[in-house]
Design a protein around this nucleic acid. Sequence first.
RNA 1: GCCGGAGUGGCGAAAUUGGUAUACGCACCAGACUCAAAAUCUGGCGGGCUUUACGCCCAUGACGGUUCGAGUCCGUCCUCCGGCACCA
Length: 891
Amino acid sequence: MDEKYFAAKIEDKWQMKWLESGAFEVEMDSDKPKFYQLEMLPYPSGNLHMGHVRNYSIGDALAWYKRLKGFNVLHPIGWDSFGQPAEEAAIKRGVNPRDWTEENIKHMRGQLQRLGLSYDWRREMFAHRPDYYKFDQWFFLKMYEMGLAYKKLSQVNWCPNEKATLSNEQASGGICWRCGAAVERKDLEQWFFRTTNYADQLLDDMAEIEAGWAEKVLKRQRDWIGRSEGAFVDFAVKDSDEKIRVFTTRIDTIYGANAIVVAAEHPIIEANYANFSYETKAVIEKIKADKLKVTDHEAEIEKEGVDTGLKAVNLFSGEELPVWAANYVLIEYGTGAVMSVPAHDERDYEFARKYDLPIKVVIEPHGKAHEISNDNKLAHDEMIDSAFSDYGVVVNSDLWNGKTTEDAKREMAEYAERHGFGEAATTYRLRDWGVSRQRFWGAPIPIIYCEKCGVVPEKYENLPIELPEKAEFTGTGESPLAKVESFVNTTCPKCNEPAKRETDTMDTFVDSCWYYFRYTDPKNSEMPFDPKIAAYWTPVDQYIGGDDHAVMHLIYTRFWTKAMRDMELIGFSEPVKRLLTQGMVIGETFFDEIPNPDEPEGKGKRVYFPPSSVSVERDAKGKIISAKSAEGTTLKSAVERMSKSKGNGVDPDEMVEIYGADAARLFVLFAAPAENELVWNESGIEGAVRFLQRVWRFVWKWKSKIQSPKSEVQNEEFSSDARKLRQKTHQTIKRVTENFESLQFNTPVAALMELSNALYDFKVDSETASETDLYAIREAVESLILMLAPFAPHTAEELYAQIVGNENGMLANGARFPEYREELARADEIEIPVQVNGKLRSRILAAPDTANDELEIMALADAKIQEYTNGKEIAKVIVVPKRLVNIVVKG
RNA sequence: GCCGGAGUGGCGAAAUUGGUAUACGCACCAGACUCAAAAUCUGGCGGGCUUUACGCCCAUGACGGUUCGAGUCCGUCCUCCGGCACCA
């Protein structure tokens, strides 16, 4: 190796050594504490992007840190290799999705390896290979047995032109992304997993992981599950035996109900449809038709409804209420019917205003009783501009008057239950997870339809149900699988008569629900994994990924874990102890905005130009003054998520080529805290290279002198400068260790830079350095190198080899992360700021353990302080040990 | 609209959780080395003022409060980013 730092040379060398020696290959070993470090697995799109580099650099740093701390670290990687893009490639370019996927994996694996990430490659998993998806199918059958998988009619996005189902993304904006036809909704029989069975557990078990998950993720999950506590209440339909059941969270406001409002699809509407007037029918049909239109996050929809003429009786008050059908009541939520209480619900208020319905106040704010009129028929004009939806005191409600909202809610629900027209109830926003996809590139659902036996699950011994080698990809019509005769036609596992296979495949989120259990036992052909092995490695100690997965993936995998617990495969309920959600990597984009003729008011269509093709003029602060394309068009700019289509992506290979993997990784971690967005700016990366080179040069200069250090020396023998260096070394160890434990990666890099600067400041000639000086240098250098390993492992390995004199590598040599020693980190003398009335006026030097009253005397004796205290009364002196002295004077 | 997060130098960011605001790095400026350049090394680098000092004043989105002391806590407001969107 060279005196000069050549990244490529050492990186190739150590990557080879690691691979040959199996440095990161681990086995279950109950004598050692384990640590499971996991990062979200990539989709093999073809190229790694900087977001991946960031994600995997963070994970690799932690994996190295934990290894050096003596843990048996499982750090695997795999491929989320089922999914739409492969099928798209097949449709567009006629390639086989399997070949396309395998090619991409090959390329991306190379990219990961060039970054020198410390994976146990023997455990690599591939979602699209039969040995993996066999167990997707295995789990499906288990779920089916447990009643957790079932089939029901549900709506999909449907392109009437291509006769194909579309994902929400493909249907974005209400038009088919390929042909532009207006997207419709269509009912289809689909498979579901009963995630709602676990709704309460998904919420309540959050208590177990609260400490390790960001609040923003937990909050989004809470919202997604959307538990709301309330009550069902039945309203009797007049002149019939029927009832309308509503769900309400505010049963205490029931005396304020002015109407029952139901969704257009509600059974009561169907049942009485024939009796409705022509006008009523027209409104109902319009509401239904509007619902079929796919609206894409459009602004608030105007409330619309119609009085059906039906009457319902409020069994609390005996009052008769009109039954309306309206567009703001959702059939999917609650019971599809609500009681409308305009005085105390914003939506009902709006609706009542529009249709001139009576508004009756039944809740008054606490402490404001009687300020609002007792008039039962309070006119809307008196409700100034909105409903009062807070809790308060019940009024105008017979025997419930004077009760608080809290008491009334509980007691009224009990009352309804006692009288047989209601009960306390809980509803959820969470729906069951629809897993059917009308696509080829996914795990086939192992179900068979037999004319005689009906729906029959495939036998376990027939798994995997493999995808056919060939299929036709047109992007139109049914799923490609449906057209492969050899796949569709089979025999019934029950009666052996000819039967047909299910041609839907599973949602790819199924694969990512349990892949990290597979890593623990990747070659198992009988079971998804051996419960005994999984028990050693799981749960995951640290999971890292983008917060775009805060809900879907992370809820589904929590659901799956609970289901696996109930299958007795594992013995815990929460799969991930600590979760780190890293911020996006974003970059400057340049685009021309072309007005959209369909939406003249809305945003135009953006046509992106790659930054390299744009000539940019900046002011002194680096702000963009103007940007022009090669043709001279003036362009707009923004800072957005990096992507190929926007042309602002950075190729990791290029970064590695120019600066080296170590510098690229170090920089990505140093540039910003992990949770922050990272605005990509290449100018900083050279600083990372410089830092590595600085460390390299220092080690090269001293390595022969410090190769065989003296055994432990008494601290008193060191020169004062050497003692200071040792202090810096141990303070740095403390800081870096604490930073790793709290998942900070930018600050420890700064600390290491400071230590390296301290080494350069330690002015000792290499020829005349004393034994103790050399000891201090060796201590600092060795610590620096070991602490550098998580950020720049190749450089650290090479430098470590230089000072220990062998090339076995840190791990094989049993190297450990340096231990912080309190007594060495302590300075002989520290500077203590002295304030007068909170303003910094002077500094005194004192031993760190100086007593408070002594510090006070020293501070008061300070010449500069006396200038401020002279002739004034000293009211108080505050001494914070080791921190500061503040003298409060009067006058 | 509701919920969540954040506002600190030219820039990315630190601040031991209420105790020296601006660590570390980028960019920039000056010097050393060099025929020269690059690299490297050394020094400077929030703003203002003057008596240029181990000096003073101001400054962490704005205003107010609590405190001996506030970037940090409380209140009101402003701005930006993210999530949700009629969930009864």
